[in-house]
Amino acid sequence: MSTSMKIGYYPGCSAKGSSLDYELSSSEVCRILGIVSSEIDEWNCCGSTPAHAVSTELSAALCTRNLVQATKQGADIVMTPCPSCLSNLRHARERMQNPEFKKRVDELLDEPAPEVLPEATSVMQMIGKLCSAEDIKSHVRQSLAGIRIAPYYGCLMSRPAELMNFGDPENPTLMEELLAACGADSVLDFPLKTECCGASAGIPHRPLTSVNSGRILDVAVKMEADCICVCCPLCQMNLDLRQKQAERQVNAKFGIPVLYYTQLMGLAFGCDPKTLGLNKLIVSADRIVDRIRALNTARKEAQGGNAA
């Protein structure tokens, strides 16, 4: 995979902490697919929800500094795995086109930001843009066929629709397309795929997160999903780390693994589960790993048997 586009990589803070596994798996998948990027020097926190909840200008200032850093190292585009970071970066870039707003934000920065800031995109969209289904297929070592996957995007990735440009804001399908290229044939039509998980309220107001995450987990389990596939560190944390809290809230037992789409793609590419950070999941994904292996072995044997 070669491209003339220079990609600046913005990992986001959680990549260095609670979503280390997302970072590991997405860099591994990008490496295999030949997507080259360089981490933005001295990148800082985008401010996440707290910054824009407090002040749009503060949020924009924090984001703009990252976009400026990316420009300084010659990046044409900024790529991030995290939908929350992406949303903030895109909002900032859009708002900075308003001269009055820009003036207020420039006052917060060391020096005024340039008129033109680079665009930001998600790792998922970058994969979708640079790699055809055939490209992805060519790397698949073990198909995801037979695994019942509930695709879950969360609320930020696809909206606001005009800003995020991620397909239908109620029914995005890029994740399904990537999984399908990895052989997945049992991806569920998951009706809650863009409903909010409760976001960052987990700490200050636990029920807000457990009720919403609980509903998502409940429907996924009732639909007999083997796992939930996510693309947002916060969603992953709420559905996985906080799964027990959700169980208590809605009085149910779930025990359903919550994997990043990059972890599932990595498994399909035959990566070692550890290099994909699967050992970091709270609800173990071992049975998914085993099942993928078993189904592939069975298929191979069946094929071999037919040949013989």
């Binding site: 809650l192 409940d218 429907v219 009732k222 639909m223």
Partner: peptide, 8 residues
């Protein structure tokens, strides 16, 4: 706002 099948 929304309609969804509950899986049951």
């Amino acid at each position: 706002s929304k309609i969804y099948p509950d899986g049951n």
